[in-house]
Design a protein around this nucleic acid. Structure first.
Lengths: 351, 351
DNA sequence: CTCCGGATCGGAAACGCTTCCTAAAATACT
DNA sequence: AGTATTTTAGGAAGCGTTTCCGATCCGGAG
């Protein structure tokens, strides 16, 4: 007999070959109650032997789940996002779910996504990677029984997993403080495509808190807010350098931004860390290569966590509604004690 | 009436509201023939008004397509792959298809993918990003009516889109030649996870061809073959430097590898490009930042092309079975004339 | 020994669509 | 005008599950 005809066996084929009814087989396979354990085993065995798998379409049509989960992300090629995607995908696929990928670079496409998805029930749940969902949108999905989990960004209304931004930035700033820095600048980063998701509030707060606790007055000129990119970081650094009294250290909201800042410093002929200390957040692969001191966060792990949360939700299992993964300082060569503790203020000063 | 009940209208609802039969509505919506244009418009209009969309499950179950396409990739967070994914996703989603993402980092998971996918007909087509598919696997999919397209890597048996590796590397090596280099090393890169997908043969051939044409004898010690990573590039460079007569220029198969090589050079205190010219392939974002001369390829565009090819295939439209996108030299600061043109041949040279 | 409740199992009705086939209508040709 | 075609529309049969509900079969209580 030629093995070539790809005719998938159907559930009734399976049922017949076992002398059972399809109803029983369905129950056996789906783990539902109402089948004796012996029968269930027999069915499972036979299914394996025949290489039978339920048709997801038919299953869904008849009221089951799709076993598909959407991952929605505003960026595809940025380290943080692809790393997160990696973690999520691995966890989900291992559990037998398929991952639908939706790239929503801008508000328009995001909007469209949330408009279209509910109509056609394509997925059982959605994981939103580091971007905000309107409470309204969330509610509509919830209503349809579509679960939501946020990965890499905190939101009020549904389960999320992310780092504690406040702690992370405190770790960064405290490190600088411990080294003896007093004039510490901050380059805040925000995603220009998600205007509603402001500056990482937590990260800024950590900075303010750390300085305050150290008894250092805040100098607003030391705080710059820029789009999330190396380019912007470079420009911000230039501004900081042209300050009457530039900082001795810079805390950037992200490694990408920090790296940009470093480029400006190099171009300006300043040495790192002798003339200026720089610290970022993320532990981006480039940080290791460029010897950048940073705060490590395990993005993969966050993704995996988010995956697990979705799985819990779908299994009706209870799950944590908020997970924060730990961060820690990775001291490298971009930070050091300040050159000299400036003790003569009031020398320079007008623009 | 409360608008809140998420009860999707069905096709027969639509049909009734129009006084038509479901068969007609189905034909109208699917673009099939056998409906007058007037009716089709009427149906489309009504569908829009009701916010009706066909149930993908039911449609698929009844013999239609899934309107889902799998993208299979061995890497998620590498620039080339995520860029490609971006291009593919954009093109496909715009055409109304959903993208299933499958990360197959190693042979095992790749194998599993091809074992599982055919069973449950989850997708209409698959796009393989830069990795080889067994002819056997390909045939099985083909048999099931699942189309295949390869993005970023050439293969014999099915449509593909990629750059012309030979041309790209000739552009790189010719540039070096033109600058006057004669001792040009090559660092070949291969993906250790895809052993069967050897060294990018084309890129190596371009090198050999260029040298041969320039009348330069091949020195096998000048050719190193390493895994595709910066780390490996760095080590390879170290080996090249410890050669009795090191090269004056290095051609790396990729920017990542080139960047690794540059790190070694810096560490060794050599200046670029004065002491050593380096050229890569890809035009990775880092290349611009680090002023690396390279060969540009538009990965996004390749992804988009691959997407279009899939669409053509699915629409029964004829499509090119092989597309190569152009590449070109981006001269930057990592290449220059060799320090001195060695003019005393026959001095070194046994072996 | 009979009756009853719970555990198992099978029948059959959806689920929402596509498509084959036939009927009716519209158009063409003599 | 009448008949032969071609269009256009509708009926109905699946597609492969899940699930409600009724039928069986079991052991144990009365």
């Amino acid at each position: 007999m030629s093995e070539s005809h790809p005719t998938r066996p159907s559930m009734s084929d399976l049922a017949n070959s076992l002398g059972l009814g399809v109803a029983t087989v369905s129950r056996a396979l789906s783990g539902a109650t109402g089948v004796s354990e012996k029968t269930r085993q027999r069915v499972r065995q036979a299914a394996d032997d025949l290489g039978y798998v339920v048709s997801p379409e038919a299953s869904r049509l008849a009221g089951g789940l799709t076993r598909r989960i959407a991952v929605v992300t505003p960026h595809l090629s940025r380290w943080f996002f692809s790393e997160m995607l990696d973690g999520i995908e691995a966890e989900l696929r291992q559990a037998g779910y398929d991952v639908l990928l939706y790239h929503v670079p801008d508000g328009a496409s995001r909007h469209q996504f949330f408009r279209d998805l509910p109509a056609r029930r394509k997925v059982d749940a959605v994981v939103a990677v580091a971007f905000p969902i309107d409470d309204d949108e969330a509610r509509r999905l919830e209503l349809l029984g579509v679960h939501i989990v946020a990965a890499g960004g905190q939101t009020a209304s549904y389960p999320f997993v992310c780092i504690d931004d406040g702690t992370a930035s405190r770790q960064a700033v405290d490190h600088l403080l411990l080294l003896g820095h007093r004039r510490i600048a901050m380059i805040e980063a925000f995603d220009p495509d998600s205007p509603q998701w402001h500056v990482r509030v937590g990260r800024s707060q950590g900075y303010y808190a750390a300085l305050e606790e150290a008894g250092i007055p805040i100098d607003e000129k030391m705080v710059l807010s820029v789009p999330w990119s190396g380019e912007a970081g470079a420009e911000a650094m230039a501004k900081l350098l042209s300050l009457p009294r530039p900082p001795t250290a810079v805390f950037a909201h992200s490694d990408e931004v920090a790296l940009g800042a470093i480029r400006t410093l190099r171009r300006a002929g300043l040495r790192i860390p002798q003339d200026m200390s720089v610290v970022g957040i993320d532990d981006h692969p480039l940080a290791a290569l460029t010897d950048l001191t940073t705060i490590h966060q395990s993005v993969r792990e966050q993704g995996a966590q988010a995956g697990r949360m979705v799985l819990d939700l779908l299994a009706q299992r209870s799950t944590a509604t908020a997970v924060t993964t730990p961060t820690h300082l990775i001291p490298r060569g971009s930070t050091a004690r300040p050159r000299e503790t400036p003790s003569a203020p009031g020398h320079t000063g007008q623009m």
